[in-house]
Amino acid sequence: MLNSYILLSFIISLLLETTVFSRLSIYGAKPDFTLIIIVLIAVKKGSMTGQIFGFIGGLMQDCLSYGVLGGQAMVKAITGFGSGFLKNKLEENNLLLIMILVFVVTIASGFLGSLAKAFFTAYSFLSQEVVRIVVSAGYNAFLSPFVALVVKKIYSANK
């Protein structure tokens, strides 16, 4: 049941990212709700769950993008795996810590994604991309407390 809720939250995230937040982008950066959810799941459930849902969420994003299939899936799996090391080490209700974690993870995942793209495609990493990644990290960090509340509700509803 919890798994289907998580998958549903991924679909809703993609809907938000591709519609509402397309109009609310800052310097071309949009919030990555899928990433926030992956980080929160990984922190709560550990590396295994984090990386599997990371791969699924990333693959869903890949399917909607005009880029290589598998790039985001790989990056998000690594992100979920890395964030899972913080299981039982992060105070769940400390929203400031969650914001900082999401900020750092977004930057790491953004650079990893750009690196993968530059390695496998004709994409060249541009200085403006740095601005987009940092703005996106700020955007994600700002929205992460709200997403954390939703994820918390999903968990409590499943208990």
Partner: peptide, 29 residues
């Protein structure tokens, strides 16, 4: 097991990246 699964997922990701943009990939999309 966590690291083994991660290696598997990374390899799967690389296979997907390397797969040509063919009809199967298009139909999944």
């Amino acid at each position: 097991k966590e690291s083994i699964v991660l290696i598997f997922l990374v390899i799967l990701g690389l296979v997907l990246i390397g797969s040509p943009f063919n009809k199967q990939v298009q139909s999944v999309r």
